[in-house]
Amino acid sequence: MIKKDDPILIFGAGSIGERHIHILQKCGYSNIWIYRQRNLALRNVDAKTINIFTDLNRIDEIKPKAAIICTPTFQHLKQTLFCVERGIHVLVEKPLSHNLTDYDKLLQAAIQNTTYVQLAYMLRYHDFFQNIKSLVENRKMGNLIGMQTYWGEYLPDWHPWEDYQSSYAARKELGGGAALTLSHDIDLVNWLSGSPVNKWQTLKNYRSSLQINVESGADISIGYQNGITAHCHVNFHEQKTKRWYRFVFDEGSIEYDYYKSVNTTYHQKETIINTIPDFDRNQLYELQTLHFFRQINEGNFREASLRSIEESKVIISICQ
């Protein structure tokens, strides 16, 4: 059982780390410890409300009950393993890693230490995709046949206060690249399919003029054992952002414009347009965090933990 005043550790305090700090504080967790490798100034967090340390050896003194990993991708698996071996539950930002080095060690450590590992693919908590999941399972529109996703953004716009060329997303050695960095959509279609992946093809695009040493775009086609197919396009070279999702069923189709929060359903020869009012992405992070702690407190997390780790192996393999 994790109490609100138990120590919670966050690895990294960049933009996503600061978001997690705010979410924890909003959820009532007051004993927050931040491990920083570079103790730079915080942008949107009052340093007086958290505890910052730079010597990782102090972790055995602090004894955190849970950790959130928010460092560059290439450090995720190593830091997750470090925590799991100490019996610390982990919520790790996507993806789990940029390769499968030490993957088997992590899987065994999670089994031996009875710790919960959850990947931070927060789209699973979105009302729209929860509804799609329900439609797939109850077949109210017949069988799901295929899925298409499109996500285009512009890397230099992500963090205007820093040089995009130095960001982890832009550098192969830090685990960057469009496929891994934007792997939310791969996890989403895998989850919605409700079936194991049995084949895929990944085509990477290096033609962009961005000064990076990774692909700036990728087209990924996936086939599932139950016959569903999916196609994901991701890129961070598109200067006008665009993000949409399309799901085709036996008896109709559903499209969703992510940035406008508008979904269009065609079913029984009728078109229905709905809008999700006041959508706030932070709600997804909050729901994800609450689910993480609820799983730990309920105690029955072994199957979910191993499934999360194994699902990550598939995503990493698709993106390599």
Rank of each mutant, 00 (worst) to 15 (best):
K3P: 09
K4Q: 10
I10H: 09
G14Y: 05
G14K: 01
I16W: 11
G17S: 10
H22Q: 13
I23Y: 03
L24W: 11
Q25G: 02
K26R: 15
K26H: 15
G28P: 12
Y29C: 03
I32E: 03
W33V: 07
W33S: 09
I34Q: 00
I34K: 00
R36L: 11
Q37T: 14
L40V: 15
L42V: 12
R43C: 12
R43A: 15
A47S: 15
I50V: 13
I52Q: 10
I52W: 01
F53R: 10
D55S: 07
L56S: 08
N57W: 06
R58G: 01
I62T: 01
P64K: 05
A66S: 10
I69A: 06
C70R: 05
T71E: 05
T73L: 03
L77R: 13
K78P: 00
F82A: 11
F82H: 06
E85L: 07
R86G: 00
G87K: 14
V90I: 00
V92G: 11
K94N: 02
S97F: 03
N99Q: 08
L100F: 04
L107Q: 11
Q108G: 00
I111C: 14
T114Y: 11
Y116M: 06
Y116Q: 14
Q118N: 08
L119I: 14
M122V: 12
L123H: 08
Y125G: 01
D127K: 06
Q130F: 04
Q130R: 15
G142W: 01
N143V: 01
L144P: 02
M147E: 06
M147V: 02
G152V: 03
L155K: 02
P160V: 10
D163P: 09
E173M: 08
L174Q: 04
G175P: 03
G175Y: 01
G177M: 08
G177F: 03
A178P: 01
A179N: 04
L182G: 05
S183Q: 04
I186K: 07
I186H: 10
L188Y: 05
L192A: 00
Q201M: 13
Y206Q: 03
Y206S: 06
S208A: 13
L210M: 02
Q211M: 13
N213Q: 00
N213E: 04
V214N: 04
S216I: 00
N226E: 05
I228A: 06
A230F: 04
Y245R: 00
R246G: 09
F247T: 00
V248T: 15
F249K: 12
D250W: 03
E251K: 08
G252W: 07
S253H: 04
I254K: 03
Y258G: 02
T264G: 03
T271W: 07
I273G: 01
N274C: 10
T275C: 06
P277I: 11
F279C: 04
D280V: 05
R281S: 14
L284M: 02
Y285W: 13
L290D: 06
H291Y: 13
H291W: 07
F293H: 12
R294Y: 09
I296A: 08
N297F: 09
G299S: 03
F301A: 09
E303F: 11
A304K: 12
L306H: 09
L306E: 13
S308A: 15
S308T: 11
I309A: 05
K313L: 04
I316E: 08
C319K: 00
